[in-house]
Write a protein that binds this DNA or RNA. Structure first.
Length: 415
RNA sequence: CGGGAUGUAGUACAGCGGUAGUAUACACGAUUCGGGUUCGUGAGACGGGAGUUCAAUUCUCCCCAUCCCGACCA
């Protein structure tokens, strides 16, 4: 994409109404636009990042055998009454409205009930199981206090996956497979080092613990205790003598850290299926409640967390897999324009995603913008590159400048 | 929801009971061209309502908005 066609503008100064690093950098670089407190729109660069993250998540979910769907945002009151979660006293984040005829509807803050309800139309026999489905869906939650930029919003993009199985064994096996898949996702988006599977309080539906995926960052809302050697972590809510002795560990084995919950997984057993009436017949013709588990990754929160973790004083440093573009091609001066155009053409012909700064702007401004936007590989072309046709290549976050031929660069990027 | 803070050009700030200023961004013209050039010209703002006052952007109250702390948080 030619940067001259990018309508967003970068800003020198931080917005006065944001404090969190993710919101400041994403706003300054033109990735997001705030509509309301906790409600953000995604601009071209931001939307590209979201889609990159979605692609990584999709790939890992599909490896688990899950099919992508999209459920509605408007939800049926009756479905939620079956599990007694329509009441504002029980769920305090509901946005609700009314149809013209007066019927109440809810805006989806979660989809566990609707999806289990929907499955009743498609699952009747043990032969229909197991089933895994996932979606990328905007959740609406009437949070009392939105904060931390895109990390805790009232409208946010979430990947939620659900698994339906006849037996607890299958359900547990899938649950464990998802833990591995999630770790792979966080590794691919650049948070492998800083993200821990964390045991947390399970609530009434689950066994002993639920599991969260916590990324270490001061921008997070949670406090966890981390054992860096064993790479395990405990949420502070379960960090007590009882838990520690069960695990055979001491308090001194852990370090207290702030963290952001980027993913969570729950095993509901059969409770929700029983409440909603999701049963199948087993091989003996007996009616059995379906085992259900659910798996969430907050996509927009994940993007915010990545910015918190992967940035420096100049701007964002996007991990390669989720950067909005692979290459930021910067043209300096108009004498080299023809050569730069050619390089842009060849790179895009090789399916390399390039943001081409073809603007009539000075070098300093272009470099500052490039640092802020944070594309991994920067290629500079100016008059002094014309004779040799060598490209000046620098990785974001490094000071090393290398001179490469175009062929060499393409070869490197394709690897 | 409790507490605190802040609302002035697109953005970031200053200001004052009587004529609202700077930077940046924007438009135009020069100049410059490898780390946010320099100069000139132009356009552009006091969140809303009520009150006090001869006069309110400024003081008071209410509302709204935004941020922070707490509570809350699949």
């Amino acid at each position: 994409m030619r940067q001259s066609q990018l309508f967003t503008k970068t800003r020198r100064e931080a917005p006065a109404d944001e404090v969190s690093k993710n919101a400041i950098l994403l706003t300054r670089a033109g990735f997001i636009h705030k509509e309301l407190a906790g409600v953000y729109s995604y601009l071209p660069l931001g939307w590209r990042v979201i889609n990159k993250i979605k692609r990584v998540v999709s790939e890992e979910m599909e490896k688990l055998g899950s099919s992508e769907i999209l459920m509605s945002t408007l939800q049926n009151k009756e479905t939620w009454e079956k599990t007694d979660r329509w009441d504002d006293e029980k769920v305090d984040v509901w946005f609700k409205s009314k149809l013209v005829n007066g019927a109440e509807i809810g805006f989806g803050w979660s989809h566990e009930e609707p999806i289990a309800e929907m499955m009743k139309s498609h699952v009747a026999s043990f032969r229909d199981l197991p089933v895994a489905v996932h979606q990328f869906q905007n959740k609406l939650r009437n949070e009392v206090r939105a904060k931390s930029g895109i990390m805790r919003g009232r409208e946010f993009l979430m990947k939620d996956m659900y698994y339906f199985a006849l037996t607890d064994e299958l359900n547990t096996a899938f649950y464990n497979a998802v833990i591995d898949a999630y770790l792979k996702v966080f590794e691919r988006v650049g948070l492998g080092e800083t993200t821990y599977v964390t045991s947390a309080s399970g609530g009434v539906f689950t066994d002993k613990f639920s599991h969260e995926f916590q990324t270490l960052t001061d921008a997070g809302e949670d406090v966890i205790y981390v054992n860096e050697i064993k790479r395990i972590a405990l949420n502070e809510e379960v960090f007590n003598e009882k838990t520690l002795s069960e695990m055979g560990l001491k308090e001194s084995d852990f370090v207290k850290k702030k963290a952001a919950e980027v993913g969570n997984i729950f095993n509901f057993g059969t409770k929700k299926s029983e409440e909603l009436g999701l049963y199948v017949q087993d091989a003996d013709g007996e009616k059995k409640p379906v085992h259900l588990s659910s798996y969430g990754i907050g996509i927009s929160r994940l993007m915010g967390t990545i910015v918190e973790v992967c940035s420096d004083e100049k701007g964002i440093v996007w991990p390669k897999e989720i950067a909005p573009f692979q290459v930021h091609l910067i043209l300096l001066g108009d004498k080299a324009q023809e050569f730069a155009n050619e390089v842009y053409q060849v790179l895009t012909d090789h399916k390399i995603e390039v943001l081409y700064d073809d603007r009539d702007a000075r070098a300093g401004e272009k470099f500052a913008d490039a640092d802020l936007i944070g594309i991994p590989t920067r290629v500079v072309i100016g008059e002094k590159n014309l004779d040799s046709k060598m490209l000046e290549v620098k990785e974001r976050g490094s000071e090393d400048v290398r001179m490469l031929t175009l062929e060499h660069l393409i070869d490197e990027l394709k690897r």
